[in-house]
Each structure stands twice: as C-alpha cells, then as structure tokens.
Write a protein that binds this DNA or RNA. Structure first.
Lengths: 119, 119
DNA sequence: CTTAAAATTCAACGATCATTGAAATTCTAA
DNA sequence: TTAGAATTTCAATGATCGTTGAATTTTAAG
C-alpha cells in the first residue's frame, strides 16, 4: 500500500487545475465535498451514485494529482478532502468561484441524500 | 463568410469553460487579451508568437465556442474580446480569479512587447 | 484461514485533443 | 484584374481522455 502522491501546490499550473475541473463527474465530486461537514460524507464509498467504483477511482486520482484534493487512507476506506488552504493561497478566490459556479449547474450529477436508514 | 457562432452564455456549462481554459496557449491568449486596451492588441494577427496561424485559429475557435471570447470580423482581420459582462453575470468572480492565476504563471507563452519598429 | 468490503489496476475501446503543413478562402489594394 | 495579407479549412499524426468490466489488492472481521 504505497503512500499516495500529492503534488506540491507550487508545482501545480493553472492549466492543470482547469483540466481537472473539465469534467461533470469531477465537478460533482467537488460540489459534494464542499458541503461535506460530517466525515462520513467524505468517504469515497459515499460517492457511488456518481459513477461506478472503477470510474470513481479514476476521477479521484485526477483530482488528487492535480492538487485539488487530498486523500487519506484508513483501513480499507479512503477519505477525501479539498486542499482549501493550499488552493486559496496559490489561486486566491478561484476555488470559491469554481464551487459557486458548479453548485448552480443543473447538469451536474448529484449524490442522493439519505444514505438509507438501517431499520 | 458565414457569421461566427457565439453560444448563448446560459447554454455554457462550467465544465465547458474549464475545458477551454485547460491549455497554456489559450490561457496565454486570455492573459494577453485581458490587458489589451488598444484595439491593435486585440487583433488576431498580434498573437503570432504564441503559435502558428493555423494553430491559433484552432485555439481561437475553442475559446469562442466555449463562450469565453467574442470575435468580430472587419475586412480580412478579426478582433478578439473577452465576454466579460456575460461571464461575470453567469459565473461571478470566476473570470477575475482565472486571469489572476494565469497572469502569475511563469509557464505561459507570452507575446513579446514592441511589435518591432520599422526603420 | 476464510470471507467480505473498499478500492485500485489493467486492458481494451472509441472519442476527442493538440499539432503540423499544405491548400483554400476572403477581402483589400494596386 | 491580379497580388498579397489575414485567416480558416482539411487531412493526418500521435497523445490523452472517459468509460467499461474483469481481475486484483488490501484490510478488517468472523
């Protein structure tokens, strides 16, 4: 289980960021992440509904390798977070306007609320 | 000479914008355009130096079809401008932070000053 | 040890991309 | 009318992309 690669934020070029944002599924992930207060909502397995596990893995890697997200491994699970401090320092204002734009896009795939209660 | 296609700004999805921005040459065009006060600087022929004419044409079309730029035909020349009002209304704050990020990117191709004096 | 859950890896596919260079277009000016 | 400048179009290229499904890895739990 090799440690995951996360680029130094200063090595990230604007074009790399935009390439990572140029996909509806990845924007959907970002939007979901941006309103994930509880930790459960940031667990990768909670993003099924956006795409198949295999495809999700691909998109998670794109976001991570572009410096947008951080991924932490815990047991068999992975937890995602936005690298907000890094991004805000390097690209001031960008993340907020990106999220705001994406949030209002009716075309984005969304995660259904209510992870289903276990009776 | 068919009139150029410019998408309605409301038909432009965030992912389309980011796809158009995911290229260093196009970011270079955007940066140059953003500081083009005089009209001469917005003429397409002033962007040689960024790429070959044929390649420039390709990138101009990408920016235009994504709703980022407007292109006006005048004789054999074309003049470019950023659709700032449209973009600011639809994606508040986005354009400014994009340009700011791109401007500071040392990796972007840039247009040389001084169009060469003719002695 | 066996099983199950979570996630990644891999090979394959068609689609789109950026780039090149040659040919065609469109307009202006001599 | 011809010559030239500005720009686009076209075909070809190799590269990368998003997607699928099957196989694999990794870890925790019975």
């Amino acid at each position: 289980m090799k440690p995951l690669f996360h680029p130094d934020i200063d090595d990230v070029a604007p074009a790399d960021i935009f390439a990572a944002l140029a996909d509806p599924i990845r924007l959907g992930i970002l939007v979901a992440l941006s309103s994930a207060t509880e930790m459960d909502k940031a667990r990768c397995s909670n993003f099924v509904g956006l795409a198949s596990p295999s495809l999700l893995s691909y998109h998670f890697a794109k976001l991570r390798e572009a410096g947008i997200t951080h991924m932490r491994i815990e047991g068999t699970s992975r937890y995602l977070s936005i690298r907000r401090a890094d991004l805000d320092r390097r690209f001031p204002g960008l993340l907020d306007s990106v999220i705001e734009a994406a949030q209002r896009d009716p075309g984005l795939p969304r995660i259904s609320e209510e992870p289903a209660t276990k009776p």
